[in-house]
Design a protein around this nucleic acid. Structure first.
Lengths: 208, 208
DNA sequence: GTCTATATACCGATAGAC
DNA sequence: GTCTATCGGTATATAGAC
């Protein structure tokens, strides 16, 4: 193993570990010492390879957004009709957020903080995702398969429901103990089941 | 002014100030010194009246949930039909979250943290809100005005879209500069306009 | 590139006067 | 009930050896 490969592995494990810590405790709550410990590297190694806490956070956010966006765009572009693209958008968003449990918490904390720590590159990825869903809704509107809705509002429904479902799991567990039989069953084992229900619900709302 | 009134005023200004700080910076990021400074009270006064940081946070969360829940239940119960109740639920949720800008960030941070710092009383308020919307959807299903959907999923659409809209304002401002004309117009000046669009979209999805 | 040791600063909390 | 002053603990960041 040469030095380049070793550095890549070290940086990768640091970023993966930091992702979990920033998601669970936030930028202010995460501890550089704990990230270094859990990553199995010395604390100074983080400063040597990546930089201070803010730079580490920016790198984490950027890498997570890059992965999600690339997969989303690739899966949507592979489809032809507006309805297929819409379903692919929802399905891929569900997959991304359920495979990477940190993604929703990272974004929700950013919204709560006024999006002040999102790096410029991260904003570009958000723009790409937004553009994709807007074009899909416009395609469906023009060929008559979707009615004319505000695309921004429609996207809020998609992203809001999926992120609240993904990040809401611990809260649902706490509520289940209090509500008992009155609590609506909302635990999906498979990504495709959740994606299907959300797609069905929203496509019903988009039906002309 | 007697001592009791004075204490109530002091506690009230502390809780109001702390609400903003915890919303903007989180439990870990908020600073007791800054809360005391912005509230215009001595730091030790907070410890005397309320307690440490965790107790202050719990008090903030509980009071915010109490206000929101009382108003929500009151407005929904005043209506008769399922559709009127549904609209009142959405309308009141929009009003609550737009009048109290801290509410959405507080809840989103809690979800990101695994709901670990929600006080027991706060969970009870969430249960009350959930029960209200579930009963409304069930009423509409029984009288034929709503189709049979998963009430938990429907609630995710309501709460997810409103909270992401409310908390997403700073991010939208940043994105507008990058996207220009492609960005979908999504700025509502009046609560009722946002509530109407969300209600219309979701009632279309609930239509049998 | 990775380690130990430490500088520097900050923050939560409280003791004690008034 | 409110103030000043301060303790004790902890966090980020870096200097310097290897």
């Amino acid at each position: 193993m040469n030095r380049a490969e070793s550095s890549l592995d070290t940086i990768d494990i640091i970023l993966r570990t930091a992702t979990e810590h920033f998601a669970e405790r936030g930028l202010a709550g995460a501890r550089i010492d704990e990230i270094a410990r859990d990553a199995g590297v010395n604390k100074a190694t983080i400063y040597y390879h990546i930089g201070g806490k803010d730079e580490l956070y920016a790198a984490v956010f950027r890498e997570n957004m890059r992965n999600s966006t690339e997969r989303l765009l690739s899966n949507v572009e592979a489809k032809q009709t507006a309805e297929e693209k819409f379903k692919a958008y929802v399905q891929t968003m569900v997959e991304n957020l359920r495979e990477n449990k940190a993604a929703a918490p990272l974004m929700m904390r950013e919204l709560a903080s006024g999006a002040e720590n999102i790096p410029q590159e991260g904003l570009q990825y958000i723009v790409k995702m937004l553009t994709t869903i807007i074009q899909t809704l416009e395609q469906g509107r023009q060929d008559g398969s979707f009615r004319d809705t505000n695309p921004g509002l429609t996207h809020l429904m998609i992203i809001g429901s999926i992120m609240f479902y993904t990040a809401g799991e611990p809260l649902r567990k706490k509520l289940m103990g209090l509500m008992g039989a009155d609590f609506p069953m909302l635990e999906y084992t498979k990504d495709c089941d959740l994606a299907r229900d959300i797609s069905d619900f929203l496509l019903h709302a988009l039906k002309p």
